[in-house]
Design a protein around this nucleic acid. Sequence first.
DNA 1: TATGAATGAGCTTTCATTCAT
DNA 2: GATGAATGAAAGCTCATTCAT
Lengths: 212, 212, 212, 212
Amino acid sequence: MTIDEDCKRGTPRRKAERPTEILHAAFEEFVLTGYAATRLEDVAARAGVTKGTIYFHFQNKENVFNQMVRELSKPMHQRTQQFLDENQHCGIEFLSSYLDFSYAEVLEDRHAREILRLLIAEATRFPDLVDEHFQYVLHPVFMRLQQTLADGVRDCRIRNTPAATCPDLLLSPMLALNVFLLVFADRKPIDPKKHLEAAKDLILYGLLPRKA
Amino acid sequence: MTIDEDCKRGTPRRKAERPTEILHAAFEEFVLTGYAATRLEDVAARAGVTKGTIYFHFQNKENVFNQMVRELSKPMHQRTQQFLDENQHCGIEFLSSYLDFSYAEVLEDRHAREILRLLIAEATRFPDLVDEHFQYVLHPVFMRLQQTLADGVRDCRIRNTPAATCPDLLLSPMLALNVFLLVFADRKPIDPKKHLEAAKDLILYGLLPRKA
Amino acid sequence: MTIDEDCKRGTPRRKAERPTEILHAAFEEFVLTGYAATRLEDVAARAGVTKGTIYFHFQNKENVFNQMVRELSKPMHQRTQQFLDENQHCGIEFLSSYLDFSYAEVLEDRHAREILRLLIAEATRFPDLVDEHFQYVLHPVFMRLQQTLADGVRDCRIRNTPAATCPDLLLSPMLALNVFLLVFADRKPIDPKKHLEAAKDLILYGLLPRKA
Amino acid sequence: MTIDEDCKRGTPRRKAERPTEILHAAFEEFVLTGYAATRLEDVAARAGVTKGTIYFHFQNKENVFNQMVRELSKPMHQRTQQFLDENQHCGIEFLSSYLDFSYAEVLEDRHAREILRLLIAEATRFPDLVDEHFQYVLHPVFMRLQQTLADGVRDCRIRNTPAATCPDLLLSPMLALNVFLLVFADRKPIDPKKHLEAAKDLILYGLLPRKA
DNA sequence: TATGAATGAGCTTTCATTCAT
DNA sequence: GATGAATGAAAGCTCATTCAT
């Protein structure tokens, strides 16, 4: 009976998850060969359906890519939002927390890592995706970092210096680590924990005033 | 007379330069749409020749891409080598010089900038190119930075700290700037000079001992 | 009613027969111009489909040729096998029967005739097809002819002579007729029945002992 | 000096032979892959010249094929003519001589053998070549064989029988041997001498009257 | 004579997309 | 919902042919 029930529920539940399964299959294929070289037929095969099924759920290939990026970015968006929410009003300690957080994102979420690569590669073809990513992930973080730096300078907890007006620098090590991992991992082994430690060391020490 | 001579040499010189012209046309097209989506016919049109001509000079599309990256990377390779040669034995001033140099590369050489993007995007399909790039550009720089940091620590001119063992950090701002310029330039205007100034400030201040 | 039923079944049946239809169209085109000069587009047009459809059912042009030869040879294989089965243990009368049979094959089955030409023409490119043809058609016949000749010699119904050890000679007139028909038919009209009669006359008379 | 002279004579002599060299190179390539699949570039490379040179000596690819068949057939034409001339008025011994001659042609002249294959393969595309071949090689032989058989029957040295009116049969073994050698040589080793002996045995015995 | 560069038509093959079932 | 057959536009690549030198 339980089995029967499972079966009965099983099929519709699976059906409801079809689109998601297709998007995950699409992710793997797009990561493997990039947008243009990916064949919808391979996506279908990986998802265990046929090409026609994809067109039942999505309008076309572009739409699959768009939906895929949105679907696979969602957790990252949510975690980022949650991180920002949970770390309001914590002063310059936010800088250290953010470095921890951003490194964890890159290191522990393959989706996040590879989607950045896809966005870099296909930025020209999918400007709207880039916009979305910027709007939902980067911009809020930038704003908060900028605010944190400004507050720190005002409180004299951070040096009044060019670096304090450039929140980009706080993203740089993570971005670079990502590129290193994606592109040069085979030639140049990287120890991400040491990388993070060094980045925190450099950035925090570099921002704090001498007497701090 | 000079004009006549130029004219006379003109045609053969053009013929000899055809492959290079094609590679430059290929660069523009590959940058525009990526490897897979680029049509060799468009490359030909841009170079002012026909498809057949491309296949007279190159074996196939992959070969065009490979040769293109090599050709367009050559100046960058040479400048990098020259920079390393001219800045031997200059102590920790090398760090500052390198930041200046690397930022100049990214900002002033569109080829260097876009080829990095192409390498990131097509790393899976062209692992050999990534190897070459690493070997000729990144690896020598890494080695020198590492040495410089180690020397600086020994001389007590640089703090003995995790950051001093991670030359990656010295590349990070330039890499990140590159990504920002390539991907987010439209949404987030960047002032590269301020960026450089801030990076130098942060890195140098962060590495030097307090009493130095 | 029967017509209606036929009509209703018509469409799916046609779909199931598509590959076969394509192979028959391919036969005509390959016969007309040979393998290399045949355009798959013409094959498609003749079959009433588009180029893409061919690639849905077959891997590539070579595969179309291979399958075509197999498909169109099948009847010949079967008739040959059937002939061998039905003519066991019939002594040297088998020789005469076989001449009748082989001439009928060549004369009445245009497929058999032209496929021989294609195999001759494309033997270098399709060695496997030649192997198959040899294995399924020629070899069994050879074996039986050889056995028949040997038995005949032992029974003194056939002369003990070099010709009795060379079954090739029993195939020769048919092969030659085929070549004449394929190549020289326009210049040299041939009466196949007279040809067969003469061949039987020559071969049988040449093999039988004088007092037989 | 001698060297100089050799050089001086050498070049023009070679130049005069260029077209012939090209035709021999063409033969090898056409034999290898057939007319349509042969690239003039490969012909040129084999002849040690460039594509352009071929077009200096020949109008186009078809012309190369035509000239090649003519050039490479010439010796066969001449030997055939010579054979016919030298064997006039020799009665039915001519039959035996002709079998010897035709087998020798096939076995000892690879050109003759392969050109037959090319004619079979490309008969549709080059009807004029087939005509020429028929006119210069086959027809004269046919006529003579027919005459010889008729004379033999009149003289009662040959049976008055259907086989005596079908000179095709006298060509059959040689034609079949050719096909066997060209197509099935790898699968079915053939002893040409035994084949010839058997053919002569069968044909002559089959044609001669019993009391002869 | 001979060459090498260039052409352009044409071919095989791919694949996003459609649609009857 | 899902499928498989079919399409057709387009892309990579080939190669006979031309021609300035």
